[in-house]
């Protein structure tokens, strides 16, 4: 079991309110990802769940039990830090086994659990090395191993991949996904990275300025963002926002259209635009266009294009994939 419930969590550092009234439920075995811009309180929330920081208000409930008063070690959680945070003076094996040793687990069992985790993460040949003798990716695997060994109810990850290079990040991401499949425990994961969030999560929690903006399945957030912040945050390149009256859309203040929902054509279309910049990514291309009335916006097309800067192009916005927002930046659902 590993369920988590946050009830009206608030946190202030002095006068600064960092988290405001956060309520959230994580089901057993769920993979939940916190995303949000830098400084929005993701790490703070994770640390409150871990017990490294006390909430100013609210309750943390793990498996139905209120754990506010419990220390980090007694909550049945384990945390993987961005900077790995391995013990530099211990071997990989000792690093992984220290928590169990502290809890007076029998030696044979420690050995068995460490061996199992090491096999799972392919760390067996490295067990006698020290952290300084490992590469960044290996260190991160040791840090993950250290948390597996403790068999926690809930795994917490704070941007575990951000110190790794791109290729390694993809590999480790897949490893974490596999790990989640095989362990079937609940995981809470903080990231900046869109791709990580979209690919790993069962549920994404979008945080902004210490508040939850929206919670939902990745595709749901992509298709039905509940406000302009989420709409702009999920998806890359960012959603384009236009003034509703410029597009002659009634009953809305702002209209959002994703770059991939704009059709382009060399000869015909609703808006004649100039190309200001083209990004060729190989598998797809991003075109940056300007229109005298609409202003600048981005279009994403699949595959490669032969357009170049300075050329003119006709763009048409797909009516059925428009998102409409009211004056409070909240989405308007058509009735």
């Amino acid at each position: 079991m590993g369920t988590l419930k946050l009830k009206n969590i608030s946190k202030s550092f002095g006068n600064v309110e960092v988290l405001r009234d956060i309520s959230l439920e994580v089901a057993d075995g769920e993979f939940v990802i916190f995303v949000g811009p830098s400084g929005c309180g993701k790490s703070t929330l994770l640390r409150i769940i871990a017990g490294l920081e006390d909430a100013t208000k609210g309750e943390v409930i793990i498996d139905g039990q209120m754990v506010n008063h419990l220390g980090a070690a007694d909550r049945g959680i384990s945390m993987v830090f961005q900077s790995y945070a391995l013990y530099p003076h211990m071997t990989v094996e000792a690093n992984m086994g220290l928590g169990l040793k502290q809890a007076k687990t029998p030696k044979a069992e420690i050995k068995a659990r460490v061996t199992k985790a090491a096999n799972m993460l392919e760390l067996t040949p490295l067990l006698n090395r020290r952290p300084a003798e490992l590469s960044g990716g290996q260190r991160q695997r040791v840090a993950i191993g250290r948390s597996i060994v403790r068999e926690p109810k809930i795994f917490l990850f704070d941007e575990p991949l951000s110190n790794l290079d791109a290729a390694l990040r993809v590999n480790t991401r897949i490893e974490i996904a596999n790990l989640h499949n095989s362990l079937n425990s609940s995981m809470i994961y903080v990231t900046h990275d869109q791709v990580e969030a979209m690919t790993l999560a069962d549920k994404i929690v979008v945080l902004h300025d210490g508040k939850i903006e929206q919670i939902g399945h990745p595709i749901e957030l992509y298709n039905h963002p509940c406000n302009m912040f989420v709409a702009g945050f999920i998806g890359s390149p960012k959603m384009n926002f236009f003034d509703a009256d410029k597009l002659d859309v009634k009953n809305a203040i702002t209209v959002g259209v994703r770059p991939e929902h704009i059709k382009i054509d060399a000869k015909q279309g609703d808006y004649e635009c100039e190309i200001t910049y083209v990004e060729h990514l190989g598998s797809d291309s991003n075109l940056y266009l300007t229109h005298p009335k609409l202003g600048a916006f981005t279009v994403r097309v699949f595959g490669q294009v032969a357009y170049a800067r300075g050329e003119t192009l006709h763009a048409s916005l797909l009516k059925e994939s428009m998102h409409k927002f009211d004056e409070h930046e909240n989405v308007i659902t058509d009735i």
Binding site: M79, Q82, Y87, P88
Partner: peptide, 27 residues
Amino acid sequence: IPEEVVEAAECDGITGSSLFWKIKLPL
């Protein structure tokens, strides 16, 4: 000594005097 190492130890249940003897002193 980085704060995160100390916090990792805290998650491992190592606090107070054993934090000093097992983590800080060796470092």
